[in-house]
Write a protein that binds this DNA or RNA. Structure first.
Lengths: 243, 243
DNA sequence: CGCGCGCTTGACCAGACTCAACTGTTGTGG
DNA sequence: CCACAACAGTTGAGTCTGGTCAAGCGCGCG
């Protein structure tokens, strides 16, 4: 089932809207770890709702290098940027075993005409993702390797929290160091060194695909940018009719 | 007047829609070069339509460093990401003398309810910007200084073209090297060296705040990523009623 | 006409990369 | 249940891209 926490964090959904969102996608499909869900450059006819697991959205450069634009978690909307294109902009790869639900683009059309609030909330989601990208860009542009890693861990922590996947500041962390490298734009070797450094400084503990944030305040002090608070029901979103 | 080319490139607007867009903003306000239009962290109540000139959207890091997230050109929508926040995410600064038209957020609400196609096109615009950010992020993450500069020039060239501001692959280029540095995440000194290198290689010519792309093919070969073609009237945008 | 900002250049430094070897872990098939 | 292959992680040595600091230059504006 598609979790609605991302939507409910920014608006009170009417039963009708909630129903429209939960029935939006096809039946869930499971992918094994390492499997490709959708490849960059293929024709696109829809996007995906993220039900379960971790999924990477990556892009290839002319040089053949790969960059992971974002690690997606349950509740996210996947591959929606490609709705302005004919061919997919990014490759979606299952990091762990993962479940997604496909949504043909056409199915959005009635949302805009019949449930304008949802149309506005789709804009909201896009803008929120855009903001996250701006932050990522700023960090990539002006922060050191260690600062980037600190931000990555805090970001994942904050996003896993509403999923109930964080216990005592510790959570499953399935990313390999190579994937962290593709995510930060660093090399695997350098990622390794800086990770051990963070570890040695007592800020984090890594063990068997789990990560524990030992010193959240210390990490926050390193992080190059603050966290953002999304606005609930902003004044441009139409008002719910039947609440 | 607010130029609609960005919108008309992706959809056939009805007269009603065109009217709604052109009457969306307040009367234009002019800012002198170097002036701040809106500062990061201040309360936001609306966004801006970009009428004229060059405008930078920048963000400060904890360290005090500045990063220019994007250079905006006429026809752009400015500061719209902050519509999901209470306080502005970015600072808008006029690079040249520039004109903008303010739009209170509330004014978008009737667009979603009464002109659902425009609601969908606002989502479209947000997704297109998001895509541009993904590309910028990928480039920042995996490209060398020279590659980044090549991409910057090609990007500006492509965006200035529909404005009629490019003559014989030459256009006004008001950015200082310090601003280019803030835009690429490099230092002004390094920007200078790489610019002269591009110049010496015969790829570009700089003179008196103008830039000429001498060897577009050569630049394209250096650029780390291709250009994207936006889809016209994608199948999720509601169909125009009275065309 | 001169002052200041933006551009240029040089010398040196450092963070991150490359290459390469080695270790530990995991999962799989005999 | 063990052997081993494959892969992830670790470590070291040397290099290079880009950063830092500092000084000089020149155009354009007041």
């Amino acid at each position: 089932v598609y979790p609605l926490h991302r939507w409910q964090a920014v608006a009170n959904l009417t039963p009708e809207e909630r129903h429209a969102l939960t029935t939006l996608g096809d039946v869930g499909v499971q992918y094994r770890a390492g499997t490709t869900i959708r490849r960059e450059g293929t024709k696109v006819s829809g996007f995906y709702l993220h039900l379960n697991g971790w999924i990477a959205s990556s892009i290839l450069l002319q040089s053949g290098a790969r960059f992971i634009q974002k690690v997606h978690l349950p509740g996210d909307v996947l591959g929606a940027t490609s709705m302005v294109l004919t061919h997919a902009a990014d490759t979606l790869t299952a990091i762990t075993r993962a479940d997604v639900s496909f949504v043909p683009f056409e199915r959005l059309r009635p949302l805009y005409t019949r449930l304008p609030r949802l149309g506005a909330l789709i804009t909201f989601a896009a803008q929120a993702e855009r903001l996250a990208l701006i932050d990522a860009l700023v960090v990539k542009g002006r922060a050191s390797a260690k600062e980037q890693l600190a931000r990555l861990f805090l970001d994942l922590h904050a996003r896993l929290l509403p999923l109930g996947a964080v216990i005592d500041d510790e959570f499953d962390f399935p990313l390999t160091q190579e994937q962290i490298a593709d995510l930060t734009g660093l090399t695997p070797v350098h990622v390794n060194r800086k990770l051990r450094e963070l570890d040695a400084t007592g800020l984090i503990v890594r063990k068997a695909k789990r990560l524990r944030i030992v010193d959240p305040i210390g990490l926050l002090a390193i992080a190059p940018i603050g966290t953002r608070q999304l606005r609930f029901e902003p004044p441009w979103v139409p008002i719910a009719s039947n609440v």
